[in-house]
Computed example of a mutant assay.
Amino acid sequence: MRAVIQRAAAASVSVAGEVVGALERPGLMILVGATHTDTAEVAARLAQKIWTLRILADERSAADLGAPLLVVSQFTLYADTAKGRRPSWSAAAPRAVSEPLVDSFVAALRELGAEVSTGVFGAVMQVSLVNDGPITLILDAD
C-alpha cells in the first residue's frame, strides 16, 4: 500500500456537494492506495506506522495527541507515467481487492484508537486541505 500523509490544519472531502468526512481540528489527511500484492497485514502495518509517525507539533504523533485522521482512497497513487502522456493504472489493485484493503486500513487505525473519517470509495470527490507546515510525506508499506 502507498499513502500520502499531509499534516493538516483543516481538511474535508465532499461528494456531490455534501461533506462526507472532515477534520474537526488539526490532524492528518491521508490519501491511500493499494496494489495487487497488498494484504490486510500490510494495511495494519501501514496504519501503525502512520499513527505513530512523529510529524505533528513538537515532534509528536497522532497517537500522542489523539489527532484526527481523514482517509481518502486514491488509486492514482499507483500511476505509471513512464511511457507516453497517458498514465497507466495497471499497478493499482482493482476495486474488488482495493476496497476491502482500504477498509482494513481504516479499521486498523480505529483499533489503534484513532478518530477516523473517510471519503466514499470510488466516488468522485472534492478534497479541501489546509496543509500545515507544509508537511507532506509519501510512505510505501514494506
Rank of each mutant, 00 (worst) to 15 (best):
M29N: 02
A10N: 12
A91N: 04
L70Y: 13
L70H: 11
A107Y: 02
W51R: 06
D80Q: 11
V13M: 11
A57D: 08
L77E: 09
D142N: 14
R54E: 05
G133L: 06
G133R: 09
G17R: 11
L56F: 08
G21L: 03
A9I: 03
L77A: 06
A93R: 00
S12I: 01
A11W: 03
A93T: 00
W89I: 09
A82M: 05
V127W: 03
T136V: 02
G21F: 02
S14Y: 04
D140C: 10
S88E: 04
D142T: 14
R54K: 11
K49R: 10
S90W: 07
D80S: 13
K49M: 07
G113W: 03
W89D: 04
V97Q: 14
K49G: 03
R2H: 09
A9K: 13
V102R: 04
M29H: 09
Y78H: 12
A9M: 09
A107S: 13
A82F: 12
T39D: 01
P26L: 11
E115Q: 13
V116A: 09
V4A: 00
V32Q: 07
E59F: 15
A8P: 01
A96F: 12
I55H: 08
I5S: 14
V97N: 13
Q48H: 14
G17C: 11
E41N: 06
Q126E: 14
P68E: 12
T35P: 09
V130L: 14
I30F: 10
V42N: 10
S61Y: 02
V120S: 14
F121E: 00
E41L: 14
A47M: 09
L65D: 07
V19S: 12
S12V: 01
I55C: 08
P134E: 02
F121Q: 00
P68F: 11
V116T: 11
I138G: 11
S104H: 05
A57I: 08
D132V: 04
K83Y: 02
A44M: 12
T81L: 13
A57N: 10
A108K: 13
E41D: 15
N131D: 01
S128W: 08
R95K: 13
L101P: 07
M1H: 11
T118S: 00
V124A: 15
E59I: 14
S104Q: 08
L23R: 11
I5N: 14
A79L: 05
A123H: 02
A91Q: 10
R95H: 10
A62E: 07
A43V: 03
A141R: 08
V71Q: 04
T35K: 14
A123F: 00
S61W: 03
L53N: 14
